[in-house]
Design a protein around this nucleic acid. Sequence first.
DNA 1: GATGAATGAGGATTCATTCAT
DNA 2: TATGAATGAATCCTCATTCAT
Lengths: 225, 225, 225, 225
Amino acid sequence: MPDTADSQGKEQPRRRQARGERRIAQLLQAAANVFCSTGYTAASTNAIAREAGVSPGTLYQFFPNKEAIAIELSDRLVHEMRETYGEALAPVDPGTPLEEAVGAAVDRFIAFNTEHPVLFALMHGPDIPGRIAEEHDALHSTLAGRIEGLLAVFLPDAPPADVTRTAHVCLGIYKAGLELVLAHEGAEREAYVRELKNVLVRYLDPLVCDGLGRTDPTGLPRTAT
Amino acid sequence: MPDTADSQGKEQPRRRQARGERRIAQLLQAAANVFCSTGYTAASTNAIAREAGVSPGTLYQFFPNKEAIAIELSDRLVHEMRETYGEALAPVDPGTPLEEAVGAAVDRFIAFNTEHPVLFALMHGPDIPGRIAEEHDALHSTLAGRIEGLLAVFLPDAPPADVTRTAHVCLGIYKAGLELVLAHEGAEREAYVRELKNVLVRYLDPLVCDGLGRTDPTGLPRTAT
Amino acid sequence: MPDTADSQGKEQPRRRQARGERRIAQLLQAAANVFCSTGYTAASTNAIAREAGVSPGTLYQFFPNKEAIAIELSDRLVHEMRETYGEALAPVDPGTPLEEAVGAAVDRFIAFNTEHPVLFALMHGPDIPGRIAEEHDALHSTLAGRIEGLLAVFLPDAPPADVTRTAHVCLGIYKAGLELVLAHEGAEREAYVRELKNVLVRYLDPLVCDGLGRTDPTGLPRTAT
Amino acid sequence: MPDTADSQGKEQPRRRQARGERRIAQLLQAAANVFCSTGYTAASTNAIAREAGVSPGTLYQFFPNKEAIAIELSDRLVHEMRETYGEALAPVDPGTPLEEAVGAAVDRFIAFNTEHPVLFALMHGPDIPGRIAEEHDALHSTLAGRIEGLLAVFLPDAPPADVTRTAHVCLGIYKAGLELVLAHEGAEREAYVRELKNVLVRYLDPLVCDGLGRTDPTGLPRTAT
DNA sequence: GATGAATGAGGATTCATTCAT
DNA sequence: TATGAATGAATCCTCATTCAT
């Protein structure tokens, strides 16, 4: 009756990894909690270790510093995002109306953010303009990339630089909107969600038209409210 | 027969302002520098004192803590903003085209931000969503208020709650845009400025009623770029 | 054209002293307040100056340091004590029963202490045994001296060293009792006052009146040295 | 067959006591030294750490603040007192003459105090009357409790409130006496010890009599020297 | 005399990180 | 691996005291 599995002596690497994985998950979860409640900057490694119920030394066995924790956390979130929503942020059928696509994307993003509140803390990058920390950067680029992918569908002819820029603008808008959304509750929150969608749709709509004169078969403005 | 100053009794509050007022300015300048280079959260009072070339004790003679410095700094910035641009953010003639008004406002804001880079650090509020610190809050409310005033001209019939919400959205957009603008230079920066204006104009345009009620049946941006 | 009063040249000392005395009284009062509310050790000169409504510099114009304030305060208290109760703590008629004399003395002491609560803070000397600070020492010796004077009446034949020692013991008892008295209120306080008197009377009674063979009706040990 | 500690799950609270327990003892010893030489109020955690030869951080790994150190120190002293002298301060046979009991108790107390001089610093509670700090309070209550236990033997019929009050008075007397004792040396110290015993015996003797008319079989003053 | 500015060492406390076990 | 002990610099802030005005 083996009290613990790894007492059998075989396959230690596997087991060790197993335990290690568990520890890592545990630490990341703790880090997420701490980042959420105190913010990334104010979070301390000791606090994370405490929250995880392990000693500081243990934490440093898996992560060289706070930044590494944030990076790994970001990576896992990105990974889970991909798992959940597929490679493209939204596997859009090119015929989808912009409004619908944006609405769906925002809803998904917000749902994901709500489920993983730490995302907000991680996204909330640069205390200092222009000096985006590495840990946030990874997440940031990934998000921007996904948005870019989504945009590519709607702006097939736009120069890449423009698409990239537009993606960054969208991400900025989203972050700002998310902040407002999270800061409110109930009906007001809903209202902010709607506004966020409006901002994005109205911003993107003319660009979509510009692209290649793709006109709505109806000849009417594509995104009638 | 007043033989000495203390026979007057009143007027205790502030004397010997000469050196003191200078020191305060010096400290605020130093604080601005430190906030800019390390961010508000990471800035330390000792660092500010060092930057100002005074001892920690001196700093504490004028400010009880970092927050107070930030608040005073914000107050002065707001004050200067008012001095520079007048009470309303832009004294708009109601007939002004939205695009023009927004463009002017953004240009002014950006100019002011460029001249006072610390504004960005101060605006960059909540590490933690929903928990905006007092020092940022004051600045935030002021900015939101100014935007609201501007919007009131264009949205005379909208319910106040909507105007407030719209102002917050605009401020969010502006902050996000500013971040992007500041993160780039040269032509790219110009491009981001343009995008920022676009976002705002397109967002606001459908909300605007041309004096006689919203006539846009589509609700879509009337001022396609 | 005298811009300030003291440019007249006459009678400066008088005026200076007058104002100075006022300042000193003001500072001492403030010090008393601060000593009472924070204790002597924790009291800061800045706090005293603030309480007095003057600048730290002014304080140091009159007192070289905290200790000097305490000493002066003690001196004035001792002086007032003398003024109020005369040179001897109680001008006792040798025939007075011990109980009465002690009761009166304790009542007076407590009354004085209640009226001048700072006395307690000042008496509460040595954080460190054997190292009585100078400031407390002055007060202490004075009090001990007064008690000694009182005792001399009742112990005319005792060797001086014994009288001194007994006085110190009485003062110690009194201080301890006062602490208990001040720590309680109402009936309980009264009870402690009674106990304090009991302790002193019973302690002194056997020592008293070897002289004429006043015998102790209680049969309690009178001379157990 | 537990291969690693974490397979047990329980028992987390304290491990690795070897070094830690030693450090704690070392820190407490250092604290005792510092409390003795500078007094409790003036003692600083940094000074304690320095005295212990460790860094400030180490101290804070074991104690959250100065108060906690004082409390732990008090607890250990009380514990050792109990170990040394048993649960009751003196396991008195009810027939023991008061004088003897008091004498023994005082001797023990003084011996203990002499061996653990920090006790004095810890007992010396309130800088401010009525505001006894927690750390001193614990010690104080314990001592008062022990005295109360001792008194209960001699005052079996007295109302509990009276016994408590009497115990507090005795403790006060003892503290005052101890101060005097410690402030002297040699013969003079001996003399003060004798006086202290006298004070206590004479104070308590009448109370004992009151109780139930327990009369000395000899009919003589019970505490003849 | 009076002021308030200035000091800098020292107070408590925290933190990222390392190390011996 | 995991632990908890250890570190020392850095945090914010206070204090007694001095000095120019």
